[in-house]
Simulated scan of single mutants.
Amino acid sequence: MDNDVLRQAPLFSSLDDEAATALRTSMTETGLRRGEVLFHEGDAGDRLYIVIEGKVKLGRSSADGRENLLAILGPGQMFGELSLFDPGPRSATVTAVTDSNFASLTHDDLLKWLDGRPMVANSLLGQLASRLRKANDVVADLVFSDVPGRVAKALIDLADRFGRTADDGVHVHHDLTQEELAQLVGASRETVNKALADFASRGWVRLEPRSVVIHDIERITRRAR
C-alpha cells in the first residue's frame, strides 16, 4: 500500500507525505477471500479498517436469524472507527463480498499518530458525523419511503460508488445476490424483485447477474426521492 492508496480514504485524503508515511508504518495489511468473515457482531475489537481492494458487507442478525445489511463498502472506505473511541463489542458482522484487502490501525496507534495533528482529529469527527447522518437517513427511508423508492435510492448509491459509465448507461457491478440486495433496502426479496422488474419493464434498467445497467439515471433518481 502506498500513500496514494491511503489517501483514498476520506479521513486521510488531505495528508501530506510525512503524515501518510508515518501512518502507514503503524498499519497492518490483511486479506480475505470472497465469503470469509473478518469479524462477527459481538466480537471484541479495537481496530479501524480501510478497504484497499474489493467489497465488503456490514450486516446484523436478529434473534430469530433474520439478517439486515447495513452497508456495502468498497476501496477507500473505512469501518470499525467506533471501536477507536468506544472499544467494545463489534456492532456488525463484516463479510467479504469479493476477494478483498484491508489496512488496519489499532486504537493505541491511532491516538499516538493523532497527537499533534488536530486537523486529522477534526476530520475523523466529521466522518463519524457523516456516518450518523446516513444512519438517520436510513431510518427515515424505512418510515417514509416505499420499497421501489428505497430500491431506486440503493441503485443510485451503488452507481455513485461502483458504477462505470458506458454508451448504453451506467454499469453497476455490485456483486450482491438478490437476497443481499433485499437485505440492503430492508424488504423481502420478492418485493425488491418486483420493483426491479418494474424498472426493467419501463426501460430504466437492465438486470444482469450481480449487476445492473441503469439506462435512465434521471428517472431512477426521481423515483428515489
Rank of each mutant, 00 (worst) to 15 (best):
S130M: 07
L132I: 14
R90E: 06
P118H: 13
V205Q: 06
V213D: 04
E190M: 05
T21N: 02
E81S: 09
T95C: 01
T177D: 13
R60C: 03
G76P: 02
L111M: 04
M78T: 14
K134R: 08
G80S: 10
D16S: 05
D46Y: 08
L184C: 00
V139Y: 08
A63S: 13
R150P: 08
A20T: 00
G35R: 12
P87S: 13
G203P: 09
R33N: 07
G149S: 15
P10F: 06
A182Q: 04
L11C: 12
L207T: 11
T21Q: 04
G126T: 07
A44F: 11
Q127D: 10
E18D: 14
F102G: 02
L114S: 00
V37T: 15
H215I: 01
T221C: 06
D99G: 03
L15Y: 10
V5D: 04
L196S: 02
R47V: 05
A197N: 11
G80D: 07
A71M: 07
L125H: 14
F162L: 14
I220F: 09
L111P: 00
T30A: 13
F79R: 04
V5M: 12
L15W: 04
N68F: 11
V120T: 15
G74R: 09
A92M: 10
L23H: 04
S62R: 08
L158V: 12
